[in-house]
């Protein structure tokens, strides 16, 4: 090809001239896919209702994103997967028995208010799905704390309502938990596999860990927040969690129950609302763990993951500002 002829059409831009293949939508869709094992387990235990609740959350999330962007004259970004992911996560944080308007309205609160009104992707202070859930919990406290028993059978009968393991632990103590689940081994196994009452996507710890392992392998998340979070919970549960005095608590029950795994691996690690420097992430994880256990052991709610992460979201800018990355060749200041 003649060189001179082509010259007019050359593209001139600034360096770098090559880019990695990673994109925001690829990240969002991959995270959504990694949630599938946990979601499928939720549907397996709670039936078509779980499917419906989640679908309503997702539809409402996408609609809310579209609506606000349309009204604000911004670019429509519903295909980037981030609203889908928020809807999916919110759905997985709901009891399968939630009436249809709860997913619809709280998903609107999550996406339209928490995310879009703060400026859209990247600008929100709080984790949208968790704000949606907090809104639902405060607005419809009864519906949001009515749990149905996992049945595994896809039958139309009305499932019995029951309490979550953490609810039992809080109200009646460890002995009651063992009474309900049999012995300790059987308790741990059922908590791990997911045969327990709870939000539809949080019940199967093993399924969540499979998804999380995939994200770790893809390097979409790192160990820093989840591990520091879980370790803090374990230590506090062990030291202060027992009724018979210090160091008599059962850390495993706390680790395997409630929304902790879903929260630690999927909600606390939300890029936008967690610190972006590793050492800050560890502080963030420890803070989440501390607040979670403070609520679980001392506050009115049996579960504290949601409020713990939301509270720590407030500290994210402060943490990022004070725990900056270590600059190459930074001089040690005198006297420090």
């Amino acid at each position: 090809m003649a060189v001179a002829k082509k010259q007019q059409e050359l593209v001139v831009t600034v360096s770098p001239h090559i880019r990695s293949e990673e994109t925001v939508s690829k990240i969002m869709w991959t995270v959504s896919i990694s949630l599938m094992p946990a979601f499928i387990m939720g549907v397996y235990y709670f039936g078509p209702k779980a499917l419906l609740v989640t679908a309503l959350c997702i539809v409402s999330a996408l609609f809310s994103e579209w609506l606000v962007e349309k009204m604000a004259g911004r670019e429509i970004t519903i295909s980037d997967g981030s609203a889908f992911l928020t809807g999916l996560l919110l759905g997985m944080n709901m009891p399968a028995s939630a009436p249809f308007y709860i997913p619809l309205i709280s998903s609107f609160v999550a996406v339209a208010i928490t995310k879009q009104l703060f400026g859209g992707l990247g600008y929100n202070i709080f984790n949208p799905a968790l704000v949606g859930r907090a809104f639902a919990l405060i607005t419809w406290p009864r519906a949001m704390t009515t749990w149905i028993e996992p049945t595994a059978a896809f039958v139309g009968m009305d499932a019995k309502t029951t309490a979550t393991p953490l609810g039992i632990l809080k109200e009646e103590g460890m002995h009651k938990l063992l009474e309900v689940f049999g012995d300790k081994m059987s308790l741990y196994t059922q908590l791990l596999v997911g045969h327990k009452a709870g939000s539809l996507g949080e019940v199967s710890v093993i399924a969540i860990l499979i998804g999380a392992a995939f994200l770790l392998y893809k390097r979409y998340i790192t160990w820093h927040i989840p591990v520091s979070y879980l370790a803090t919970v374990a230590v506090i549960a062990w030291v202060f969690g027992g009724k018979e005095g210090l160091f008599t608590g059962d850390p495993l029950v706390h680790l395997l129950s409630g929304g902790l795994m879903l929260g630690a691996w999927y909600m606390a690690t939300d890029y936008v609302t967690c610190p972006s420097v590793r050492k800050g992430q560890i502080v963030f994880g420890i803070g989440c763990g501390f607040l979670t256990m403070l609520i679980r052991l001392k506050a009115g709610y049996p579960e504290g993951v949601m409020f713990a992460i939301l509270l720590m979201n407030c500290f994210t800018p402060l943490i990022d500002r004070n725990l900056k990355s270590k600059v190459f060749g930074a001089r040690k200041e005198a006297g420090k």
Binding site: V11, H17, V24, Y271, S276, V277, S325, V327
Partner: peptide
């Protein structure tokens, strides 16, 4: 060739912080 005119907001994923050889943000 990768077109580079269109870009989105920072999602604070921290990838740039991890790879910066100078340890910047």
């Amino acid at each position: 060739y990768v077109p580079s005119e269109k870009y989105g907001p920072c999602i604070r994923c921290g990838r740039c912080i991890d790879v910066c050889p100078m340890g910047l943000m």
